[in-house]
């Protein structure tokens, strides 16, 4: 059928536009030459290997991991109770609270980084790492609240009441009955938060100090200095990492419905 063919082609072309470039950097990273070209000059794994040898990459990878994991956990610790309160209680100022918590999505990251630099790091002597941690937590918080809220709203609240009537305390009911049933929502929130934080650039632009740089920022500055294929290799590796995480998450959680 003709319309079927047309519809297939539209999808394929769009996907090629969206995903094709990654194929190219994967190949570009395989180059045996010293400069970025495509098609690559011969095939070798040396640039992929080099990624692991660059010291600054290692340090910045560690920092980014710390921020992504730590920040997301912190955001969940703040966000889960907030989401629970919003969905189960009639709290005063609920709208205001929701707006405040959601604000980091609207405020451009670069401004956040700058603001924290000027008003936390400089005057209050916060270290850059702490400022980064706070910023990433606040940034992930709206996602955590949103994803957990939607899981909670899909969960009937009478289960908690049943648990309380069977002798649970309110906190006990939350731990024994609510958490197990929103587990996949929480995991999805974690993954979404992790990915958001790990890939975050603008917030970290101004928040970098001696030896303290997130991985994307490090990649940016490396790119400005050298034009060898190691950044392509690193990009490809990061893409693989994300793809693997998302693939697993999709398989076990049906991740895409939470995005």
């Amino acid at each position: 059928m003709n319309s079927k063919l047309a519809s297939r082609s539209i999808i394929v072309i769009t996907l090629l536009f969206l995903i094709g470039p990654f194929g190219i950097i994967i190949l570009a990273g395989l180059s045996a030459g010293d400069f970025m070209t495509f098609p690559p000059d011969g095939i070798s794994l040396k640039w992929y290997a080099k990624v692991f040898e660059v010291k600054s990459f290692r340090a910045s990878f560690a920092l980014s991991m710390f921020l992504a994991i730590g920040g997301t956990i912190a955001a969940l610790l703040l966000g889960i109770p907030a989401a629970y309160a919003i969905s189960r209680y009639k709290i005063p100022f609920a709208e205001t609270i929701k707006t405040i918590v959601a604000a980091p999505i609207i405020v451009p990251g670069i401004i956040v980084g700058l603001a924290l630099l000027r008003y936390l790091v400089v005057p209050l002597n916060f270290t850059v790492t702490i400022a980064l941690f706070l910023a990433h937590t606040a940034l992930v918080l709206p996602y955590a609240v949103r994803v957990v809220s939607s899981s909670l709203n899909n969960l009937r609240s009478d289960m908690e009441e049943a648990a309380v009537l069977l002798g649970c305390s309110r906190v006990g009911a939350f731990i024994r009955v609510v958490l197990p049933n929103i587990r996949s929502g929480v995991l999805a929130a974690f993954i979404l938060g992790f990915v958001t934080s790990f890939n975050q650039v603008p917030v970290s632009l101004f928040l970098s100090g001696p030896g303290v740089r997130t991985l994307p920022i490090d990649m940016l500055s490396y790119m400005e200095m050298t034009y060898d294929p190691s950044v392509a290799a690193l990009s490809a590796l990061l893409a693989f990492l994300s793809v693997a995480i998302v693939f697993i998450a999709e398989k076990f959680l049906g991740f895409s419905r939470y995005v």
Binding site: R156, D158, M159, E161, A162, A163, V164, L165, L166, G167, C168, S169, V177, P180, N181
Partner: peptide, 17 residues
Amino acid sequence: ANKRGIGLVFQSYALFP
């Protein structure tokens, strides 16, 4: 509620999934 010693069978069952 958890101190009253009352049982309630919910209209919606409220089972733990």
